[in-house]
Design a protein around this nucleic acid. Structure first.
Lengths: 259, 259
DNA sequence: ATCTATTTGTACGTATGTATT
DNA sequence: AAATACATACGTACAAATAGA
């Protein structure tokens, strides 16, 4: 234990600018990796960590807060409680990523440059691969905005659900990276403040047209017509971009919290 | 100030499961947002935060550690020091994202599914848009692996630099999201452990062929032949995928630290 | 180069909250 | 319902870093 002390204090002297708190946080990560701990596994509790690293309670606690903020561990109080390795959640990661883009002033156009290639990619990948339950889940979302919206509240809910359709489709992909990016974009777009009336009377036909793309998409997905699925989604994206481009508001204009 | 106390303690009672530390962290974020603080702006110092939120020093500190871990603030000691709003860095964000994919067992194939659509996208976007200095930067990277590698050490360096070529190209894109994703993929791939000898003698011609794609790419980029640029990059990616697919090692198999 | 003032960083002890048995 | 084992919260004292005189 005293060896631990001297070890870390020496480390500290070497890379002098990094604080003990950060050193401890890194060491705990190393510990998890070295012991091949997986989500759910328990770390030593506070007192044991204090013993192990010969650091004060506050230093240990600040270190665990850092790891927790990164989503790598969770803590529980009570008997049997303590620190547990935790699988970094999708929501938390999306939140952290959103914070990065907070300063980047993303435009609708930029997001659609990606959507136009990724959404068709994922839908053609899944064409003919979805089971009935999955198709049903998509249809359920579709039914949430079958009629033109009647209130501002409904507008927002429709906007959100239309994006959820894409998030759900991506959910079925086996490619975790593709899945994540599409969901992230859906999240960004769902936060676009609706300044102009996307769903004002004159736009009802456009609105209906957008939904029709999704209906046609489901049919093509079921039939497993990969080429056709790709094209429908691509056209859908081009159409959606035109619709969204009216929104001059930039996206992601707030820090987000986790979970 | 006492109002602050009761305010937060009541909040705390409502959503009882969330700790004061987390509440304070959120409130500080809100404070930044409400006061429209930008990177470089100073937050109240520890004592002022203690006063403002009527919390103990440790609670405040744990809250700031959380925000720091997310890359939203930085702290400095000494006179004029304190907490400062900080633009979330690309490296830190990539690190946080890598932690998420640590548990996901990404395969080479999945990454290339995206590379095959995104790399051509970014290169055709930039075709004819790069200035001489930018072209020169690309060529400089290219020169770092002009001859076949002679040692294992050189192999690794070549592998890394070949990916840096793509990261650099993405760097020139105006689309922050596209830029980020491509750099992230380059990072993931550069961490693939080289088990099989990618550059073993029998593969030298393949290796050379890969580099030739990049040379042709630069020419097409300069001439502004968007279609041609797109196709060269697409073929390059298909070729690279075949080469990399021999690597059975999965990527991203460690937690990463920041900066 | 040294001192001084300011501000974060670390240590430690105690008390309280919370969940399990 | 009570005891137990754990995290959470508080407050003080002192150490370390840094800017400016």
């Amino acid at each position: 234990m005293l060896r631990a002390t001297s070890h870390f204090k020496e480390e500290h002297k070497k890379k002098k600018s990094s604080r003990l708190t950060l050193v401890v946080a890194e060491e705990i990560k190393t510990y998890v990796f070295a012991n091949k701990l997986v989500p759910g596994d328990r770390l030593p509790n506070e007192n044991e960590l204090i013993e192990k690293f010969q650091m004060s309670k506050s230093t240990i606690r600040e270190a665990t807060r850092i790891l927790e903020a990164q989503g790598l561990i969770k803590t529980r109080t009570g008997p049997g409680g303590g620190c547990f390795v935790h699988e970094v959640s999708e929501n938390r990661t999306i939140a952290l990523l959103t914070n990065y883009f907070y300063f980047k002033n993303m435009s609708i156009r930029e997001i659609y440059q990606l959507r136009k290639v990724l959404e068709p990619e994922v839908s053609s990948e899944l064409s003919g691969e979805l089971n009935l339950k999955q198709i049903q889940e998509l249809k359920t979302i579709l039914n949430k905005y079958s009629d033109p919206p009647k209130s501002e509240e409904e507008e927002k809910s429709y906007h959100y659900n239309a994006l959820q359709f894409h998030a759900k489709l991506a959910e079925f992909s086996k490619n975790e990276l593709l899945k994540f990016i599409i969901k992230f974009m859906a999240k960004l777009l769902s936060e676009v403040t609706i300044d102009r009336r996307l769903f004002e009377p004159s736009n009802h036909e456009l609105w209906q047209k957008g939904r029709n793309y999704q209906i046609k998409l489901i049919k093509a997905l079921q039939k497993g017509e990969k080429e056709k699925t790709y094209k429908i989604m691509y056209n859908h994206m081009c159409f959606a971009e035109k619709l969204m481009a009216k929104q001059e508001t930039l996206v992601g204009k707030k820090f987000v919290s986790f979970e």
